[in-house]
Every structure is written in structure tokens, then in C-alpha cells.
């Protein structure tokens, strides 16, 4: 599996459809038709992943908008985006 570090540019997989579900996000891969849900800070991160971005850059934005310290934020983001990559929802930019 592709592994990333905080400086790797990543982007959403364009082969996905997402629908806002009452503030959360439900996504579907067009090819397999599987559904995925993201809630909490997730929809905001997804929004930022529309253009190529690194985990370091994501951390700066998210820390500015949510009450979280930067080391925790970066570590959580790395974990989360790594998971999205594993599911094929996010790819290297």
C-alpha cells in the first residue's frame, strides 16, 4: 500500500460521488458502488482535498478552524488520510 508522509501532496479520487447528508458526507465509488461515510471534521478535510494538498498544509488550516493542538492534529490527519488512501478514496497528487 502507498504510504505518505506529511509533505506528500495528495488529492481526492475523482471517481467518487459525494452527497452532503445533513452536514455529514456520504461517498460512493462509481466503479464498485460501495458507500463510505465521513462525519465530524471529515467533511471539511474532504473539501480541502479537492486540490493537491499535504498533511502539513491540512494541519495548518484545520488547527486554525478547530480547537486542536498541531501535533495531535497532524498525527490524526496522517492516520485519517492514510486510511482514505487505503480505501482508494484519496490518491497521490
Amino acid at each position: 500500500m502507498t504510504t505518505i508522509d506529511p509533505t506528500t501532496p495528495i488529492i481526492r479520487n475523482s471517481d467518487l460521488v459525494a452527497a452532503d447528508m445533513d452536514g455529514d458526507l456520504v461517498m460512493m465509488s462509481i466503479e464498485e458502488g460501495e458507500y463510505y461515510g465521513i462525519s465530524g471534521v471529515g467533511p471539511r478535510i474532504w473539501e480541502l482535498l479537492e486540490r493537491p494538498v499535504t498533511v502539513d498544509e491540512l494541519a495548518v488550516t484545520i488547527c486554525g478552524e478547530f480547537a486542536v493542538d498541531e501535533p495531535t492534529c497532524r498525527s490524526d490527519l496522517l492516520h485519517f488520510t492514510q486510511e482514505l488512501i487505503g480505501l482508494g478514496l484519496v490518491q497521490l497528487a
Partner: peptide, 30 residues
């Protein structure tokens, strides 16, 4: 609320298995 809203809407879609071959799942989700 939130994400939990999708599953009941999907499950109560009429003959939801029809969607599989109709290439309409994207429209359905939206």
C-alpha cells in the same frame, strides 16, 4: 441526524436492487 440518515433512505428506496444495473446509483445518492 447526519450520516445515519442515508441508510434508512436507501433501504426504503423502492426495489433498490433495480438501481444496480441502471447506472443510477450516483443520481440516487444525490
Amino acid at each position: 441526524h447526519g450520516l445515519e440518515r442515508f441508510t434508512p433512505l436507501r433501504n426504503n428506496t423502492y426495489r433498490v436492487r433495480f438501481l444496480e444495473g441502471m447506472a443510477l446509483k450516483r443520481e440516487h445518492l444525490q
